[in-house]
Nucleic acid binder design. Structure first.
Length: 567
RNA sequence: CGGGGCGUAGCGCAGCUUGGUAGCGCGCCUGGUUCGGGACCAGGAAGUCGGAGGUUCAAGUCCUCUCGCCCCGACCA
């Protein structure tokens, strides 16, 4: 393609709405343009990248025997009601009524639709296992789209689903995906890590995420550099750090603590360590069930962990609710005799012998309370892991890093087979639920993650495999070298390189700047002098290295460079 | 949903305090000179000032309402 014929519209200045690197560079490079909040058009160069990524995904999915299909985005509300996710997705799902008044939804994911397909087409153990996948637009009405293409309301996802006879067979399908995903992200040039994850609203059992570590990632990942433990902060575990000093409360007594509400206030007022205080939080469900949550004063609650215990319809009670229900200011509630429906405590609470807690009377706390004095219905790991907490496997200090989630794999089990009645007949003729897995990849996120990972002050440095063009012919003076350039262009194209030819009649500086901004890995500079000697200059975007090469040796030289520099 | 910011030409912005013919840079078009790092000269086109209502002789500017976009938080495979 000649540059002047391609819709490449670069911008010298930063659009003001863009904060993150990938967002800025995608806009400046003319790869995307915004249509509304969280909804983008992929312009031709951007869509080329998306297609290259999708082709890599296809080839790796096909290699594990997965079959591509395409399901509808416009789905009937009925199937979501059957699985129960009409409610659990809530406003995150785009829902509306058709002209007949029937509920419909734009699919945010496709477990329901594919489960119904499986129910119609898979009847016998002979039909299993199966892996089906699609590359399809998903719709999610995110409360706050952000980071350009990182969190959007309409996006292309590769989603696949496995159907197996039993759990061992699911393990195999899961492992096939895990390996295929690793190859996909490697081929796209990404650096990534597989981490333990929360399965959240997808339901089911074990799940892992493929994370790309970048400053702008919106997920937090806890990692141990010593033993390699890595987990999403939502599920990460850590050892409880002993609270060094010994409590010196000899007996239980009520003390006046006017206006001391927070752990910090109370610790300061009574001159005790925060780890000698037990923090009491009240959660309330939509139905009005109350749960008191206890945790050692120097820790914070991890709400993802807590809600997986309590149920997602619980939320932190408002001060007004607490006043109304119990007649106490939130700062003074405590486990001693409060009529909460349930009392759940973090494991760290076991660790204190005598402690300070709210007294359930305004402006008073209890000191010297013992565990045996109070009712605790359940102990659980509810702690939010902090940087520097100790690894639960090897006791080394943990780190917390931001990351972009580019893939997520789940062992669903029978959640959808049960709710949607997806069964097969086994050897002995008995009907059993099909065991399912579900596996997603965010195509646009791969594109954004690659930019976050590989850029400099001049622009993007695309990995060769997903670059919008592999080779760019920069003609310094088109009027004088067009025949020569034509030959080089032919040569590159015939040799299989995805080549663009910048024959624009503008100053060379602009061509260099554009090439650097949009990140083409290999540039071939054609100048009058060198052309006269039968040479062209190769410039590599990644390290700015330059080589003068005879045209007849060009292809070989480029192949060698790609190999050696691992473009 | 809470907090903050912003809507003026394709992009980046000034003009608003103190109402009086809508501007600048980049980009775009025409002609010319240039031609290895966003070059120069001359000429030109392009804006319902996000929208509605109001105040006023007069509104980009003041008032009311409203829509949209971005950031932080809440929330979220």
């Amino acid at each position: 393609m000649k540059w002047s014929r391609v819709l490449i519209r670069t911008m010298k200045e930063n659009p003001k709405e863009a904060e993150t690197k990938s967002h800025r560079l995608l806009l400046r490079g003319g790869f995307i343009t915004q249509h509304q909040s969280g909804v983008y058009t992929f312009l031709p160069p951007g869509w080329k990248i998306m297609q290259k990524i999708q082709n890599i995904i296809r080839s790796e999915m096909n290699s594990i025997g997965a079959q591509e299909l395409l399901m509808p985005s416009l789905t009937s509300g009925e199937v979501w009601k059957q699985s129960g996710r009409w409610e659990t997705f809530g406003n995150d799902m785009f829902k509306f009524k058709d002209r007949k008044g029937k509920d419909v939804a734009l699919a945010p994911t496709h477990e329901e639709v594919i489960s119904l397909l499986a129910r119609d087409y898979l009847h016998s153990y002979r039909d299993l296992p199966q892996i089906w996948y699609q590359l399809q637009t998903k719709f999610r009405d995110e409360p706050r789209p952000r980071g350009g293409i990182l969190r959007v309301r309409e996006f292309i996802m590769k989603d696949s689903y496995s159907f197996d006879r039993d759990w061992d067979s699911l393990d195999k399908s899961y492992q096939l995906h895990k390996d295929a995903y690793s190859r996909i992200f490697e081929r796209c040039g990404l650096e990534f890590k597989i981490v333990e994850a929360s399965s959240g609203i997808m339901g089911g059992g074990h799940s892992e995420e493929f994370m790309v570590f970048t400053k702008t990632g919106e997920d937090s990942v806890v990692i141990c550099e010593k033993c390699g433990y890595a987990a999403n902060a939502e599920v990460a575990e850590a050892n409880i750090i002993e609270n060094g000093s010994k409590e010196n409360f000899s007996e239980k007594k009520i003390v006046h603590t006017p206006n001391a509400r927070s752990v910090e206030d109370v610790a300061h007022f009574l001159d005790v360590e925060p780890s000698h205080i037990v923090k009491s939080l009240l959660y309330v469900s939509e139905k009005g069930q109350t749960a008191m949550v206890l945790i050692r004063g120097d820790y914070e609650i991890n709400e993802a962990k807590l809600l997986s215990k309590l149920g997602t319809d619980f939320q932190l009670a408002s001060p007004d609710f607490i006043k109304e229900r119990f007649g106490i200011e939130p700062g003074f509630i405590g486990p001693d005799g409060l009529a909460a429906d349930k009392i759940i405590a973090d494991e760290s609470v076991r660790q204190v012998e005598r402690f300070v807690a709210g007294s359930n009377k305004d402006d008073y706390h209890i000191v010297g309370l013992k565990l045996s004095d109070i009712r605790i219905d359940e102990f659980a790991d509810l702690r939010l892991v902090r940087e520097g907490d100790l690894c639960s496997r090897c006791n080394a200090p943990l780190k917390i890093l931001n990351a972009i989630e580019v893939g997520h794999i789940f062992k669903l089990g029978t959640k959808y087979s049960d709710s949607l009645d997806v069964k097969y007949a086994d050897y002995d003729g008995t009907l059993k639920p099909i065991i399912m897995g579900s596996y997603g990849i965010g195509v646009g996120r791969i594109m954004a993650a690659a930019i976050e990972l590989f850029n400099d002050e001049k622009g993007i440095i695309w990995p060769f495999a997903i670059a919008p063009y592999e080779v760019n012919l920069i003609e310094i003076n088109p009027a004088k070298t067009s025949n020569f350039s034509d030959n080089v262009y032919e040569l590159m194209t015939k040799s299989g390189f995805d080549t663009i030819w910048d024959e624009r009649n503008i100053s060379a500086g602009i061509k260099f700047k554009d090439a650097e901004l949009i990140g083409i890995p290999i540039n071939i500079i054609i100048s009058e002098n060198k052309a006269a000697r039968g040479e062209a200059e190769i410039q590599i975007r990644k390290d700015a290295s330059k080589y003068d090469i005879k045209v007849e040796n060009l292809v070989q030289a480029i192949n060698t460079i790609i190999e050696e520099k691992r473009l």
